[in-house]
């Protein structure tokens, strides 16, 4: 897989992890708060692993680019203020991510394929978590509305040729995708926050 595509995956994981971690301390149930925060942390860990595959300095790749240089999909950038949308995104993202990882496990580059396998073993648990919420909420109108609103964004997570499976798994008809490459207005403020500490640190600071 080419570097830009890998960078897209890493950026997705970083941004979705960052967004989901915004629920830390305020998730609807204490137990879910712990679980959701832990999953968010795992996603950031996956981003780190993929950045490390692409660069000697994963932090620089994660934090020293301008917002325009990120390859993240608009789905992960959205700042979602209610739980129905947050869980809808989590579920849609996990379904798309599984399709993407399954392909990546067959990558001709053994380092990429190996890492995909490693990430997938952790994602299996994320999928279990997302499916459990989906099973419980799929008949709820608020959740259905959220899934429908996010659907064009979910399609944009995958390259066009991989979307058929997503359509099949989610059970909605294919619509025009919100494509990767153009960012939502939500990214810039997130980037401000995400890179603030690194930008304000004195040169040569060690972490």
């Amino acid at each position: 897989m080419n570097e830009q595509a890998l960078l897209g995956i890493a950026d997705d994981e970083l941004i979705v992890g960052w967004r989901d971690s915004e629920w830390t301390g305020i998730a609807p149930m204490l137990e879910e708060d712990v679980a959701f925060s832990s999953i968010a942390q795992n996603e950031i860990g996956h981003a780190r692993a993929v950045y490390s595959l692409l660069s000697e300095d994963p932090d620089a790749l994660a934090f020293d680019r301008t917002p325009e240089e990120y390859r993240s999909a608009p789905l992960v950038e959205l700042r979602l203020l209610d739980w129905a949308h947050t869980i809808a995104r989590r579920w849609l993202y996990e379904v798309a991510d599984e399709i993407r990882l399954t392909a990546l496990k067959d990558d001709p580059d053994p380092a990429v394929a190996g890492l995909a396998g490693k990430i997938d073993r952790e994602e299996a648990y994320h999928r279990m978590h997302a499916e459990m919420w989906h099973d419980r909420l799929h008949d709820e109108p608020r959740f259905q509305t959220a899934v429908e609103e996010l659907w064009p964004y979910a399609l944009g997570v995958l390259p066009a040729e991989a979307r058929g499976e997503l359509v099949e798994r989610v059970g909605l008809t294919e619509v025009e995708a919100v494509e990767r490459g153009k960012h939502t207005d939500a990214l810039a403020p997130l980037w401000e926050e995400m890179t603030m500490v690194r930008r304000s640190a004195p040169a040569g600071a060690q972490w």
Binding site: M29, E31, E32, A35, M128, H129, M132, R136
Partner: peptide
Amino acid sequence: SVEAPDADFAEAWAREQ
């Protein structure tokens, strides 16, 4: 202990906690 709506949620939450 964990408080959960069903066994699947209990499993997911207990795994984390």
